[in-house]
């Protein structure tokens, strides 16, 4: 807990190392929380990222740390990246299962509604996001905050310290950019 707070402080003072060190801690906490959620209801398949992220924040930083609003930006950034890894790993695992022995479980739980397919091709999206991250880290962060951490535009804008209108324009561009990369017909090099 101290460590997270110290790292957040260092990150606030512009130490890029701190942000990097923050990630594994946040990742572990989120993984643990997500696992606990899944264990509580193994046949369900749900992760409400915003709830997880907020819970992780309260656990790692504490309620009083919440006062330091500038902390939250760094925390959310780390959490969004962590959620991305958790969710993408999950998608990879599922994709592998689909080719493998997952059918039995489906048969056993006949009355469980099938796991919904996301609107996006997650693995392609992940790759595209990697490229966006190189070109424009700010917009990549915005996408992670919204899509993986589940923040609203206003919350994400606050976390990134952007006016909401600017964040909205960034979002429009990033979304189109990623969609072109994932779904577009062109073989465009970025």
């Amino acid at each position: 807990m101290i460590e997270v707070t110290q790292l957040l402080n260092a990150a606030d003072q512009g130490d890029p190392q701190a942000a990097a060190h923050l990630l594994p801690l946040v990742y572990d906490e989120l993984r643990r929380l997500a696992a606990a959620r899944l264990a509580a209801e193994p046949s369900g398949n749900t992760l409400q990222p915003t709830a997880l992220v907020h819970e992780a924040y309260l656990r790692l930083v504490g309620a009083s740390g919440g006062d330091q609003w500038d902390h939250r930006g760094h925390f959310f950034a780390a959490a969004a990246e962590a959620m991305r890894r958790i969710l993408i790993d999950d998608a990879r695992r599922k994709a592998a299962e689909r080719h493998g022995g997952a059918m039995r479980r489906q048969e056993l739980d006949a009355d469980v509604s099938p796991v919904p397919e996301p609107n996006e091709d997650l693995l392609a999206l992940d790759e595209a996001l990697n490229r966006l991250e190189v070109e424009d880290p700010l917009k990549a962060n915005l996408v992670k905050l919204r899509y993986f951490a589940g923040l609203s535009l206003a919350e994400a804008a606050a976390a990134l310290d952007l006016p909401e209108r600017t964040a909205g324009r960034h979002w429009a561009f990033a979304r189109a950019w990623l969609r072109r990369a994932v779904e577009g017909s062109s073989e465009k090099e970025s």
Binding site: G44, N45, T46, L47, Q48, P49, T50, L52, M83, L87, V115, P116, P118, N119, E120, L122, V143, R146, Y147, F148, A149, G150, A172, F173, R175, A176, W177, L178, R179, R180, V182, E183, G184, S185, S186, K188
Partner: peptide
């Protein structure tokens, strides 16, 4: 292509992933 991607119907990225899965 960017503009086409923008105006193309569909829910691309509109719903956070976790919410879709749940």
């Amino acid at each position: 292509e960017l503009l086409a991607a923008h105006f193309k119907p569909g829910e691309f990225l509109n719903e956070p992933l976790g919410r879709q899965l749940g």
